[in-house]
Design a protein around this nucleic acid. Sequence first.
DNA 1: CTGAAAGCGCTAACAC
DNA 2: GTGTTAGCGCTTTCAG
Lengths: 337, 337
Amino acid sequence: MTATIKDVARLAEVSISTVSRVINDSKPVSPEARRRVLKAIEDLGYKPNEVARSLVTKKSNLIGVIVDDIGNSYVANIVRGIEEIGRMYNYDILLCSSYGDRQIETKFIQVLTTKQVEGIILVSEIVNHEVINNINEYKIPFVYLNRYYDIVDMPTVSMDYTQASKQMMNHLIELGHKKILYITQSMDNDLTIEKRKIKGYMDSINSINEGPHIYEVNGHRISFGYEIGEEVKELVNQNEITAIFCCQDEIAIGLMNYFADNNIKIPDDISIAGFGDITLASIYRPKLTTIREPYYDIGAVAIRRILKVISGEHIEEKSINLPIQLVIRESTKKINK
Amino acid sequence: MTATIKDVARLAEVSISTVSRVINDSKPVSPEARRRVLKAIEDLGYKPNEVARSLVTKKSNLIGVIVDDIGNSYVANIVRGIEEIGRMYNYDILLCSSYGDRQIETKFIQVLTTKQVEGIILVSEIVNHEVINNINEYKIPFVYLNRYYDIVDMPTVSMDYTQASKQMMNHLIELGHKKILYITQSMDNDLTIEKRKIKGYMDSINSINEGPHIYEVNGHRISFGYEIGEEVKELVNQNEITAIFCCQDEIAIGLMNYFADNNIKIPDDISIAGFGDITLASIYRPKLTTIREPYYDIGAVAIRRILKVISGEHIEEKSINLPIQLVIRESTKKINK
DNA sequence: CTGAAAGCGCTAACAC
DNA sequence: GTGTTAGCGCTTTCAG
């Protein structure tokens, strides 16, 4: 069996309290006693049992993180941010993947609470009302991160999407594009972040006195972008579209795949812009012009918030907005008249 | 405060032992008592404190997973496998990212042990001798997963790389290629998995009475594949190479990026094959012909092994080999004479 | 079938 | 400075 504090105390010929004191540096201990304790710890290879410690201190130093799918690069980046900052404060993370199942998300919140995590970060792609309605009962610091939906009345960290959308439109307009197609997501309620992006598009398109062209895609995987290729191509031809602004990098890449397979050259024949700056965006050829959403920072800010709540600091605002950044690469270029 | 077993006992007017019995279904309880306990649990919203439970049962139901970087898609897939199977057995995972730092890996093993994890899976890209030499002292079920190095005398799960390499060569040879360049990794010891891949290449190239062409790259990121582009191009020209087999998808993609930027058409001008089947491989255009390494399964098998050790089953072999799979896509094609 | 009591490994009063 | 002791919330003998 592994050594316990008792074993150390016995070997060092002191009481367990003294051992506890030197481990935690919580109270003064005589140099001599300290030396003996340290020696005993060394000899026994003693490591404090964090479970026992948690039980009495009620501090597990654990943050529960529920994600949709760690395989998404943006999720991985959020988790990186969470973990790296958490680590600085000596917190470990307990990872759970829900694969988009509401019931599983809810269940995880329960199991995480029983594991005595001190905070929970939910990275979801759906809106889980059950969680939203009941999370307060758990009285546990909580942050709800959602890439697609506006989370209201809940602690979250987000970005100014309308502004971002406008920035991209400005870029396109500066390149001489006027007939700009926006590809949006058809989603299931009014609280979509998409709405904010569309607003940015509409504001910009109105400002140059052009009419909007909007196409709806139903899903956010690369394959969906591919599947809409043909219809988009027709739309482009009918309306003399010269640039396409996609609400999601994945869609943009799927579309570029379709164009590549159908001999349409990007950016010579048409400019394409995305949103998100997923890992692929800079690897794909042509490299995708897009908007970088600072996911690492989102994770970092989310856990900082939780840590603050844990340490009793008062937090004013529920929602924090992070700056986004326009990333101009190869998929957009000056219009050729 | 949250309700404890005592509160439940008091409300149900039974002893805490009875409550414990109904929670764990560990011993018969009279229907009447059970009913009252269940009611009390319901009324109080009681959830057992897993920390306290762990302390007495010595079962944390936690598996520690130390990864290099969760942002790598293959790592994410391993973690998925670990988590999904772990979940089936009611195990949660504690995630730590080392970013390739040996000392941090070692430190994590320590903190994980103090957290009383019941097993540790290390997903590393380097060889950490300190871990290898000391892990036995911890007497904790352990699996060492390494994508680049052969792990010997340690529980691990791997694949038959030589065989895989031969399969790819066969595919290339069947397409009519003879002058095949292999791009290898220059790595720092004899225990590299690369050695096994090279063996497959050499065996095949010998079997068709051709001479080997091998180029060394020093790193496994996409950017490295790009950087060697020019030199590879010259080599190809000098030796009339018609196909390139890269030891890693990342290198293949970096190279294809270089070729795309320099007007060399894949697969018309030259065939390229990778190894790994990373997410990008099927998204990139042209889609990459490669070898699929079953990372999800590796994670799944790794945790199954740990679970078996925990449950006291005897495990014979240290190392398990999983089958790989040739994935033929667009980047290789019949040689045009 | 049920309750009392011991104890998991540790921290934190509380005395000395 | 140091030791004694009472728990933290739970499981598990051991009697009854």
